[in-house]
Simulated scan of single mutants.
Amino acid sequence: MAMEPSTYPEPGVRLARLAGAVGLSATWPPTDEFLDVLAERTGLRTHDLLLVADLPVPDTAWLFDERAGASGSLVSCSLDLPAAGRRLLRVRARSTTAPAGTLTPWEPRPHERYPPGFGSLLLRMLALRNLNWLGTAKVMCLMSGVCKAASTIGAVGRGVKPLDAEMLDGFAATLGVPVAVLAELTGVRRSVAGPEPAPEVVDTAMLVWEIRHVTRDQESQLAEYARTLGRD
Rank of each mutant, 00 (worst) to 15 (best):
S191I: 07
M167N: 13
L185E: 13
A173T: 05
S191G: 12
L175Q: 07
P178L: 01
T186K: 00
V188K: 06
A180L: 06
A193D: 15
V181W: 07
T186C: 00
L168G: 03
P197T: 08
E184A: 13
E200S: 15
A183E: 09
E200N: 15
V179N: 04
V181Q: 05
D203T: 03
A172W: 03
S191D: 12
V201P: 06
V177I: 01
T204R: 03
E166L: 10
P195K: 14
L168Q: 06
G194C: 10
D169N: 11
R189K: 11
P197V: 03
P178M: 00
V201Q: 03
G194M: 11
E200A: 14
L168V: 04
T204K: 03
V192R: 12
D203R: 04
V188T: 14
A172D: 01
E200M: 13
V201W: 05
R189A: 12
T174W: 06
T204I: 05
G176C: 02
V177F: 06
G194V: 09
E196I: 12
P195H: 14
E200Q: 15
V188C: 06
M167H: 15
L175H: 05
V177H: 04
D164M: 02
A180Q: 13
E166Y: 09
D203F: 02
M167V: 05
P199C: 08
V177P: 00
A180R: 15
G187F: 00
G194D: 15
A183I: 01
E200G: 11
D164C: 01
G176M: 02
T186R: 00
P199N: 10
E200W: 15
P197I: 05
A183L: 01
S191E: 14
P197N: 08
V179R: 10
S191F: 12
V177K: 03
E184S: 12
V192C: 05
E166N: 10
M167K: 10
D203L: 02
A198G: 11
V202L: 10
T174A: 04
V177W: 05
A183W: 10
P199Q: 08
E196M: 11
G194I: 11
P197G: 08
M167L: 15
R190I: 04
G176S: 01
V201H: 04
G187D: 01
D203M: 02
L185S: 10
V188D: 13
A198C: 10
L182P: 09
A180M: 06
D169C: 02
D169W: 13
V201R: 02
V188R: 11
A193F: 13
L175Y: 06
P178F: 03
A172V: 02
M167I: 06
T174F: 06
V181G: 04
V188M: 07
L185F: 09
L185C: 07
S191L: 12
V179S: 09
A193I: 07
E184Y: 11
R189H: 10
L185W: 11
D164Q: 09
A173Q: 06
A165T: 09
R190N: 04
V177S: 01
P199L: 05
L185D: 14
V181A: 01
L168K: 04
M167Y: 15
V202W: 12
T174H: 04
A165D: 14
D164V: 02
V188S: 09
